[in-house]
């Protein structure tokens, strides 16, 4: 059975907890040890043959298929949605013995939310909107809140907010907490994915503390990057964020999702992230309601790997439908 048979987000949302500054400040991350673990993890686990194929299908189901470019138009958003609905060719799906396969979500700017919602009508694929002055998050606070409200009104089921990095860099955890709480309230029933912009937070300890504060404020997902920072998703950052999710889960029972985004382009990288989720958080976090891969060009590499699995020969990009 594939995860897409379930409607996304059957689980209880993270209600958040009061800001616990003592806990936040007690967090310590040792960078070199974290990097060593991140380096050895992909060498400790691997999946081959049918297992690799199945894991790659799961990766597709977890993709937030994304277009966030200045030159986006209705046309390419339309194309993206078509690919989201049918990420694999019918022949591949039948070779793999699967029913329907679709991506986790389609992620666009507010301007194209309505268009994407229209395109995805009749499917269970949610539309996610990047919001709150994405990517820098520095527009006036009221406007950022309004932007959320407008995207929700246009039909976005998920809002990818960006946090104010200054709050983290200045250790102003209360401000970060309040900001995230306000954003979450503005989202109503839409889920909040808090983008930390980890490449701009300076240290892994800051990443861990910011992760925790956002979860305390009720984030449903924590997400690494906008894709616009110089350094986006990395395995060490992911290790730190997933460990924060684990600690928060152990303390509160709440399940918070994880979304690495930016720079994930190969099937091998996608497998590394799935392995990391399984090892650090367990199988429950291998479902699209708790794991997303933010990516725009990843899908075609996965298709090529699956083609190789099915036929034994390597495929060319031109043979796979554009998204």
């Amino acid at each position: 059975m594939s995860a897409v048979d379930q409607a996304p987000f059957q689980l209880d949302r993270n209600p958040g907890i009061p800001l616990d500054l003592k806990w936040v400040r007690s967090i310590q991350v040792n960078r070199s040890a974290t990097e060593r673990r991140a380096q050895s993890l992909p060498a400790r686990r691997t999946v081959k043959k049918e297992w690799q194929a199945a894991w790659l299908v799961r990766a597709i189901e977890c993709i937030d298929l994304t277009t966030l470019s200045g030159d986006d138009t209705e046309g390419n958003v339309h194309r993206l949605c078509a690919k989201a609905k049918q990420p694999l060719s019918p022949s591949m799906i039948s070779l793999l013995g699967l029913g329907n396969v679709q991506v986790g979500a389609v992620c666009v700017y507010h301007r194209y939310v309505a268009e994407a919602v229209r395109n995805l009508e009749g499917t269970s694929i949610p539309v996610a909107a990047v919001s709150t002055g994405f990517p820098a998050g520095l527009s006036p606070f009221e406007e950022r809140v309004k932007e959320i409200e407008r995207s929700v009104a246009s039909g976005a089921k998920e809002i990818d907010i960006v946090i104010t990095r200054a709050h983290v860099l200045q250790g102003n955890w209360k401000a970060l907490f309040e900001e995230t709480k306000t954003f979450r309230a503005a989202c109503c029933d839409a889920h909040v994915k808090a983008i930390l912009a980890t490449g701009e937070l300076g240290t892994l300890t800051n990443v861990a503390r910011a992760s925790l504060v956002c979860m305390m404020a009720g984030a449903d997902f924590i997400k690494t990057s906008t894709g616009k920072e110089p350094i986006n998703a990395t395995l060490p950052v992911s290790l730190v964020m997933t460990r924060a999710i684990r600690d928060y889960h152990e303390a509160t029972g709440a399940l918070v999702g994880y979304k690495p985004a930016g720079g994930i382009r190969t099937a091998k990288q996608a497998l590394d992230y799935l392995i990391l989720m399984k090892e650090e958080l367990g199988d429950r976090w291998l479902q699209p309601d708790l794991f997303r891969l933010g990516a725009s060009t990843l899908l075609v590499d996965i298709e090529r790997q699956l083609e190789h699995f099915a036929t034994g020969s390597y495929s060319a990009v031109s043979r796979h439908a554009m998204g």
Partner: peptide, 14 residues
């Protein structure tokens, strides 16, 4: 018979 659907259920390593 493809094993892929079953593996998708368990997400085991193999």
């Amino acid at each position: 018979m493809s094993k892929v659907p079953d593996i998708l259920d368990t997400m085991s390593y193999g």
